[in-house]
């Protein structure tokens, strides 16, 4: 994994603790160094601090998203909810706030990695939702025959909704099944990912026909 964090002591302590959890950790102290390392090492997960000396974490996140779907966890030192939402909108898969403990972080990372590599064998090979076709094993999603590029989290979210086609799936259930959260996950993670998913698969993201909101309950896939 790659750890992009400017404070050397935080970076070092997280490095050591994550190593104890069994991860191979690469370090970067700035956004530029982080992007450089990302190309060189192709890590499984990126841990990205939002406050960096050269550029902010959002820009780094957007840059990462331009060419890879590697899971990104942003580390926020602010409680301001705008930060979290902005980070998720920039393409992050999940977020944690300081003070974060390596052990808890490890659980988040494992959940992200697991779902990144784990198509279910019992599933049919493709799920169809109107003109959207989801190749569960291949990871290929097409809309009207044209392939669209989803991040792994967006893909898992779409698969989870398609498997329960027509039924409302609550945010809590989605957090549990897609992100591996317990009950206290932040529903905004789901909302932002649904929003990003709509931009990619809906003809008119403002008036979605396939990924529909059930107000107060959750989301529902409609053919």
């Amino acid at each position: 994994m790659l750890l992009i964090e400017d404070d050397p002591r935080v970076r070092r302590s997280l490095h050591l603790a994550l190593q104890d959890e069994g991860y191979e950790v690469g370090e970067a102290a700035s956004g530029a160094a982080g992007l450089h390392q990302l190309r060189a090492q192709a890590p499984d997960v990126v841990l990205l601090d939002l406050m960096l000396p050269d550029t902010d974490g959002f820009a780094v996140c957007r840059e990462v998203r331009r060419w890879t779907d590697v899971p990104v966890i942003i580390v926020s030192a602010r409680t301001d909810s705008h930060d979290v939402v902005a980070g998720l909108e920039a393409g992050a898969d999940d977020y944690v706030t300081k003070p974060l403990v390596a052990k808890e972080l490890s659980a988040r990372i494992r959940a992200l990695m697991r779902r990144a590599h784990q198509p279910q064998a019992t599933d049919p090979r493709t799920l169809d939702l109107g003109d959207i076709s989801v190749g569960v094993d291949s990871g290929v999603v097409t809309v009207g025959g044209v392939e669209v590029d989803l991040t792994r989290t967006e893909f898992r979210l779409l698969v989870e909704l398609c498997r329960n086609e027509g039924q409302v799936v609550s945010r809590e259930d989605l957090l549990e099944r897609v992100w591996g959260y317990g009950y206290l996950g932040d529903g905004r993670i789901v909302d932002v990912h649904v929003h990003r998913l709509r931009v990619k698969v809906e003809a008119d993201p403002a008036n979605p026909h396939h990924v529909v909101t059930a107000r107060g309950l959750g989301y529902r896939a409609v053919p």
Binding site: D7, V10, S13
Partner: peptide
């Protein structure tokens, strides 16, 4: 109060993770 606890968060992150390593 928010600023104070915010400033506490960074050193605290170092402390808890160093502690994790020590406990290990």
């Amino acid at each position: 109060a928010g600023d104070v606890s915010h400033e506490l968060r960074t050193p605290l992150t170092t402390m808890v993770n160093a502690m994790e390593s020590l406990k290990h």
